[in-house]
């Protein structure tokens, strides 16, 4: 049984495991520093499809298939899918996964969806409500750009604070296996809005949410940043990461030694000209489901906090001049079950 220890934090006492995971990415991500950790790199980012939306759906499907293959499971053994993406009404997930014939929860947490879905799947598994569940999210540079910004062929400059939407998808299979990585706890994020309105500065809009969630988890568990090998945020990028460290400093919490950000890890910021770093549901998903989980399995990392961050605006709210609310969900991963 999971144990709620505060308004925000739940500890998973049966320590469900991530049985297998897979990350598939596009060409640009496949040219980045994490290239060798990804399962599939699609040099043709259309994936042979006619529209970018179909390409993203196919990518999400392939991430799930690859994860199933690695776990040596068939899709009929999966009892629940937790999936989400950035497109309106989450079409990448619903179209990509419709052929699986598996009960499906479609989620929207913007770029925080990976930890939202992984957290929910783990809670179900911890309470014996499923044997095998899958958490999966995706984003695609071209479909996101089309929806949120401007046509791809439109000539324009990106400001230095802007982030680059990752073309990628990550899937994790959650169940009881008695093998690491274990999911030991979750903190469910609150909607935090500090009044940032600049759509080209998502990192700044989301950093206060990450700050709130991390601070809450550390307080609830009575732990300090030094108790973890890695505190990994989803896609704050360079600007958001700096702000997060700053915000926590105001609370006498020093994160600088253990903090990393998926948006900064996935690209070589200078050489790949991505300005402040990567973003999108696929950013945290592809980095977590490859490099990070692998390092926990190998025993290189022992205790890891993953906090995917999302910006909860839409093109409508933005055009109506609203500020950008942020959210951040935390998942506590470990290579030991704990006591």
């Amino acid at each position: 049984m999971s144990q709620r220890i505060s308004k925000d934090t739940i500890l998973l006492t049966n320590a469900p495991s991530i049985l297998a995971s897979a990350a598939v990415v596009g060409k640009k991500e496949g040219e980045g520093p994490l290239a060798r950790h990804f399962d599939i790199i699609y040099d043709d980012t259309t994936l042979g499809e006619e529209t970018w939306e179909k390409s993203e759906s196919k990518m999400q499907k392939s991430a799930v298939e690859k994860a199933l293959e690695k776990a040596n499971l068939s899709s009929s053994e999966i009892q629940l899918l937790f999936a989400g993406d950035l497109l309106n009404q989450c079409i990448s997930s619903s179209y990509g996964l419709r052929d699986f014939d598996i009960p499906f929860y479609g989620l929207y947490g913007a770029c925080s969806t990976m930890t939202e879905s992984l957290g929910l799947a783990s809670l179900f598994a911890d309470n014996g409500l499923l044997d095998y569940g899958v958490a999966v999210t995706s984003s695609h540079f071209c479909s996101a750009e089309r929806q949120f910004r401007l046509p791809l062929e439109y000539g324009g400059q990106r400001p230095p604070t802007s982030q680059w939407t990752v073309t990628g998808s990550g899937a994790a299979i959650v169940g009881q296996s008695g093998k690491p990585p274990y999911v030991r706890g979750v903190t469910i994020g609150k909607i935090i809005d500090m009044g940032i309105k600049d759509i080209n500065n998502m990192g700044a809009a989301m950093a206060p949410a990450a700050h709130n969630t991390i601070k809450t988890f550390l307080q609830d568990t009575n732990t300090r940043p030094e108790d973890y090998d890695l505190i990994l945020t989803g896609d704050l990028g360079k600007v958001g990461s700096d702000l997060l460290i700053d915000l926590l400093k105001h609370d006498q919490i020093d994160l600088s030694g253990v903090h990393q950000d998926c948006g900064k890890l996935i690209y070589d910021l200078e050489a790949q000209d991505v300005h402040a770093g990567g973003s999108g549901c696929g950013c945290c998903a592809s980095v977590l489901c490859s490099y990070i989980l692998k390092r926990i399995q190998e025993g290189v990392l022992h205790n890891v906090l993953v906090i995917a961050t999302g910006a909860l605006m839409s093109t409508t709210s933005f055009q109506q001049g609203e500020s950008i609310p942020g959210i951040a969900h935390l998942v506590y991963l470990s290579d030991s079950k704990g006591s």
């Binding site: 604070t161 500090m194 009044g195 950093a207």
Partner: peptide
């Protein structure tokens, strides 16, 4: 929020 907007401005490269 005002203080944070100032912080964000400072942290954001022009």
């Amino acid at each position: 929020p005002n203080e944070y907007n100032e912080m964000a401005k400072k942290a954001s490269p022009g």
